[in-house]
Computed example of a mutant assay.
Amino acid sequence: MDGEIERLIKVWISAIIGLCYCYYLASRIPKGLLRLLSFLPLLFLFLILPLNLSSPTLIGITSFFLVLLGTSKLLLYSFNQGPLALSPPYIVHFISIAFLPIIPKQHPPTNENHKPKWLVPLKVLIFAMIIRVYDFKENLHPNFMLVIYCCHVYLSLELLLIFISVTIRTLFGFEIEPHFNEPYISTSLQDFWGHRWNLMVTLILRPTVYNPIRRMFKSFVGSSCASSAAMLATFLVSGLMHELIYYYLVAGHRGWQLHRLVSGLLVVSFLAITANWLFFPQLLRNGVDTKATEEYASLVEFAKSKFSKQHNYSVLHV
């Protein structure tokens, strides 16, 4: 575990250094394509950093903060949009808003502030009980354990985000958007996905995917079809991001491995390029290819002559 903590520190130091580059240098580039191009090396860095970890918990948190939130907010910031464009002019605020699930509230507080004070301690107690249940999972029904896993995922995210919200409110003094809105009391799938579960992702995907796609298609296919296309694209991007996080979790246990088809193409391409660069020029300059071709032709003629003599000899004796 000591090695894993050391790798985690290196990952986050690398990410913070990258954001310092964005804050002090890249942010001075005019918004638009040029600023986006200046962000591309950092976006690639965010994509590969979680692969340095092996702990499922640390991989999940790091990939969510860096890949899902960090890259999305930087994409918006490329065009001077999103929470980073509205953040206070301090590097600490910039880094915190870029990495953490923080979006300052755009509207007055809702009734979420009037939730019972005993609700959070109750969730902590239930989470502790769930952790204790794992000691007896060999004796419990698999379907019951599936319910435990679902509760574990929700409560771990909920309590982590509550802790972050309280910390941000204490340190910086501003309110942030809620992340969950009691999803266990949802009345429909639309209510669950749109109003109660992981609202931070909804707030990120709307300006980065839904709104641009809708604007782009609206002039061609009309408002209704554009909204449907934008919604489909949003679900597609969300699914790909979730698949990427699943990949990080799996790759952390077996190392960073590409699919055999991809790795095979990369190996063949690398060998072809390096051979054309280092191996073949020496041979071509000295005419080895021509000599080898002539040798093959001579070998064929030699074999044909031998075969012809043997064939004629056999015919004569017959």
Rank of each mutant, 00 (worst) to 15 (best):
L8E: 05
Q257M: 12
H253V: 08
S269L: 12
W197Q: 06
I103E: 15
L19V: 10
E6T: 09
Y149H: 12
S14H: 04
I131C: 13
W12C: 03
V120K: 06
S308V: 00
I102R: 03
V250L: 11
M1E: 13
C22V: 15
L37P: 01
P207L: 09
I103K: 09
R28H: 13
P30G: 06
L278H: 05
L69I: 14
G18H: 02
M216S: 04
G70E: 01
K309Q: 11
L42F: 04
L258M: 14
P207V: 07
V153L: 15
A85Y: 02
R169T: 05
P41M: 07
L86G: 05
V124D: 02
T293K: 13
L8M: 07
I95L: 08
I59C: 07
R196I: 04
S186G: 02
R285C: 10
E6M: 10
V268K: 15
G82M: 02
N111D: 15
V201W: 00
S188K: 11
L36S: 08
F280T: 02
F79E: 08
Y134Q: 11
K304R: 10
W118L: 06
S186A: 15
G222V: 01
F192T: 02
V11I: 11
V315G: 00
K31V: 05
K137S: 14
G18M: 00
L249G: 09
S263N: 12
Y210G: 04
S305M: 06
L42P: 01
L244Q: 04
S308L: 02
R7I: 00
L36E: 11
M216W: 10
Q282Y: 07
R28F: 05
F307H: 10
L125V: 08
E294Y: 11
Y313F: 08
L261V: 15
Y24G: 02
G222C: 02
L37R: 00
Y296S: 13
E177I: 01
H152G: 02
Y296H: 07
F235K: 00
I148A: 13
V201G: 00
G252Y: 02
M129T: 11
L299Y: 15
I61F: 06
L84M: 10
L157T: 08
E6Q: 07
S156I: 05
P183C: 01
S238G: 09
F144E: 04
R254A: 12
L125F: 12
E138C: 03
T167N: 06
R260S: 12
H242D: 07
S87G: 00
R285V: 08
K117T: 13
C225K: 13
